[in-house]
Design a protein around this nucleic acid. Structure first.
Length: 258
DNA sequence: ATGACTTGCGCGGCAAGA
């Protein structure tokens, strides 16, 4: 089973690239973040025409997540743990796979900048909720994939210029500690399970020719439960999409599970 | 040293992103 994740930075602006990607890479499951639209504005008809089912958790203007799959599936919306949180940042699917299932969580973790504001405390609180929920999901002992834009640079090797990120919400020690805490529950970072190479990035800023200089960061991740990690066959970062006209600032990351 | 793009909203320049 092929599972991909991509922060599209507006699904309406990226519809053409998305449809091309679905046709060329043929993921069984596609996780999308930063839709920047409400459910009614999501291009469901065009995606369904390619044989996908869509589950959308949109929001006006910002945020918004979706899961697409080439078969029917069950879906739940929202990250448990705070009924007052109105931001659309989590959607989960149970994907049938022969006699078994794969549970896929699609997440858009808050950016958290500027540090020292309520934005950063919201990020840390959201990570605490994710850790608590992930702990409960692991008890199910299923194939589980938590995929998305984590807005976390896990280590210095995951940034072209780590010094520039020292005081940023994506790289602060408290941020990385929570990401480590999540991993230590028993998750495997799919990319790092397959490669210890540096200069592997999933985001390049639009400004100052960052992509041309490969001045990027790795912040889009697929975390695997033990049962999913045992099935990991391959991982890829689809960097070529960043060189297209009108790209997202993120590129897709995908895995193949046997 | 600073800003450097892109998007949504909605029609004037901001907020937000990372």
């Amino acid at each position: 089973m092929r599972i991909a994740t991509w922060n599209v930075n507006s699904v309406r602006q990226r519809e053409g690239h998305l449809l091309s990607y679905l046709q060329s890479e043929k993921p069984d499951v596609m996780c999308l973040q930063e839709l920047k639209c409400v459910d009614e504005q999501f291009p469901s008809a065009e995606i369904e025409a390619l044989g996908y089912n869509c589950a959308v958790h949109g929001q006006k203007g910002f945020n918004g997540v979706a899961i697409l799959a080439n078969r029917p599936f069950e879906v739940t919306r929202g990250l448990p743990g705070d009924d007052t949180d109105t931001q659309s940042r989590y959607i989960e699917a149970i994907i049938p796979d022969g006699q078994t299932i794969v549970r896929v969580g699609c997440l858009y973790l808050p950016n958290g900048n500027p540090v020292g504001t309520e934005k950063y405390s919201y990020k840390l609180a959201w990570m605490d909720r994710l850790i608590a929920y992930a702990r409960s999901l692991l008890l199910l002992e299923e194939k589980l994939v938590l995929a998305g834009d984590y807005n976390v640079i896990p280590a210095a090797a995951d940034a072209f210029d780590p010094k520039a990120w020292e005081n940023d919400a994506l790289f602060l020690p408290q941020t990385r500690a929570r990401f480590a805490e999540l991993l230590h529950l028993g998750f495997t970072d799919a990319l790092r399970a397959c490669s210890d190479a540096d200069k592997l990035y999933t985001f390049w800023d639009y400004q100052a020719g960052a992509f041309q200089r490969n001045n990027g960061i790795r912040i889009d991740h697929l975390l695997l439960s033990p049962q999913a990690a045992d099935c990991l066959e391959a991982v890829a970062i689809d960097k070529s999409l960043r060189a297209l006209e009108k790209p997202s600032d993120h590129v897709p990351v995908r895995i193949d599970l046997r």
